[in-house]
Design a protein around this nucleic acid. Sequence first.
DNA 1: CGACTCGTACGATAGGCATCGTAGTACGTG
DNA 2: CACGTACTACGATGCCTATCGTACGAGTCG
Lengths: 116, 116
Amino acid sequence: MTTATTSRDLPHPARDEIRLEDILHALADPMRLQIVRELATDGGELSCSHFDLPVTKSTTTHHFRVLRESGVIRQTYRGTAKMNGLRRDDLDGLFPGLLDTLLDAATRQAVRLRSA
Amino acid sequence: MTTATTSRDLPHPARDEIRLEDILHALADPMRLQIVRELATDGGELSCSHFDLPVTKSTTTHHFRVLRESGVIRQTYRGTAKMNGLRRDDLDGLFPGLLDTLLDAATRQAVRLRSA
DNA sequence: CGACTCGTACGATAGGCATCGTAGTACGTG
DNA sequence: CACGTACTACGATGCCTATCGTACGAGTCG
């Protein structure tokens, strides 16, 4: 059965359609920043249902869509699951160092607030 | 007359009250990102009226307040003028490299969109 | 004091958005 | 085909926010 990846595609912005303001807006939400941090830690792709967020599934869908439409993540169906992965190549190509610096900033703040 | 700086103070978040999400939210607005870019280019302090933004003065005041309350800029009265400066020390202390990386990203996008 | 400039405050408005609930679709498995 | 799982679509709601206009306060200069 050729591991067909099910073809049902989702709209993503092309690399040169990605806007910095959209990225910042996407990451300005704590829920979405958390998702991106987990994706970065994992390094690979994670299904939506992997995340245990304190909101309903509707809201989770909404956040993943914002991340996809801003160009931060790439989403692909794989059977019933929807896999999510960071668009590292595109982001690093457009804005070198941005993603890593943002992730580092998020980590620093998490550490700082935890030990406060 | 001792250059009194007029004393009339404005509320700023302390360094450890600054939140990454607030910074990202502040900079996600094109108008505010532009203001920050000009402040960074200048390096010093600029009055509100220096900026020629395509919005009314009320709206300009609003944007500067968002930047101040998020901890991105410091505002001080000097006579009738209100001077604005980046909080470089605080931002670099909390989130090393973040401000420079964001400014670089903004510049890259500006160049890219101009030559599109 | 009076006039002028710079910026603020406040109310209104319109649009955006995070959230929810319910109903529904797509896919895999028995 | 029937069922369960994973995710979506849509409508509603309440909050946030970018914008404006007008009226006002604070400071400077004549």
